[in-house]
Design a protein around this nucleic acid. Sequence first.
DNA 1: TAGATTGTTAATCGATTAACAATC
DNA 2: TAGATTGTTAATCGATTAACAATC
Lengths: 214, 214
Amino acid sequence: MKDNSKISSAVIKRLPRYRRYLYDLQKKNVDRISSNELSNLIGYTASQIRQDLNNFGGFGQQGYGYNIQSLYNEISAILGLDQEYKMVIVGTGNLGQAIANYTHYYKSGFKVAAMFDVNPKLIGLRINDIEVLDYEMLDEFMKNNTIDIGIICTNKDSAQEVVDKLCAGGVKGIWNFAPTDLNLSDDIALENVHLSDSLHSLAYYINRNKQKDS
Amino acid sequence: MKDNSKISSAVIKRLPRYRRYLYDLQKKNVDRISSNELSNLIGYTASQIRQDLNNFGGFGQQGYGYNIQSLYNEISAILGLDQEYKMVIVGTGNLGQAIANYTHYYKSGFKVAAMFDVNPKLIGLRINDIEVLDYEMLDEFMKNNTIDIGIICTNKDSAQEVVDKLCAGGVKGIWNFAPTDLNLSDDIALENVHLSDSLHSLAYYINRNKQKDS
DNA sequence: TAGATTGTTAATCGATTAACAATC
DNA sequence: TAGATTGTTAATCGATTAACAATC
């Protein structure tokens, strides 16, 4: 595998999508596909698909195309999905609970080790067999456990403080659902899910389409 | 305002973020800001900020900068946030409920008119004063109500069918949380929130950082 | 007016697409 | 082998950044 350190984020964002399509093809017992056929399915140009994949090595074979099983495995490995990740969720409101459920049912490599909240009504509950702990215990918990990913489901005002604690506690990545931008050292990965921003873009396109109609 | 129909999506994705920062500045009673100061806050170059804003018109003033209140209002209007949107949520599991709560508390212009599910245990419940209706009634509901946005919180297998019904029912936009790609006419806006893909990118960057360390 | 800062054009940079030689 | 299709280089396209004249 080549040096991955300077591959553009545009490429990385497409990898999970390739993987989803390859997963479905695998389920259908298809065993090979050309960049051209994949292009028709997924909507990227065949040229882009070949360029993207060649960032990581030559996974195809001239005259044949790509073996679906092995390409799926390669992409999974590139993304690091052959590993396990221990996570904590901070903020156990509806969204925190939804994420806990989601990762519980769908994402086998991603384990929620604990959830934290300040609300006494939530502390002590078990959600999908995951204990909700007092936020006061976060520092101690981080000291006694190796946690890879911190998931921020708090409001925007608490988010930075929580992130600071999690980073001090040794997480390698932050999955942020709070509607704010976070400051953290750039050796810790950060992925934002800004639901507000997403909804606001949607509103823009709704109106743009309206204008086109009239 | 200029013709917005060919503004790149890179620009549009930045608008909600500008708006967030302007909102905070407004709260702090700051009344003007230069592209340079805003650049220091938000992290885009001053040049990009000026380019972005000038896609929609000259909102600044030479020698002065931008008036925060009025720029905030302009961006809100560009995004269509001066309007109301009626929404339905299909799929009332944890995620559907979280979205209902979220829009209920934070997003005053976005009203959830109804929620739908196939699960008899959920049908009839009220969540934040929003009724959970039988999915069987979706078509009829859409006939009798004007709904702007359909929110997909189903599993991936049901998503396309739901979208087809919503589009037939006249929605102008789809906010998709199901982990699949949807087909719809391009006069209907589509915004995807692919949580899987997001988590998978995070995993990639965690591993890339690990490699750099060693 | 002088200084500041925009609006806008030009230059650069990066990402996508096209083309084709290599090769299975 | 001949046909198909990749891997990779070159060309194009688009987005970002730099520069500066316009102007408040």
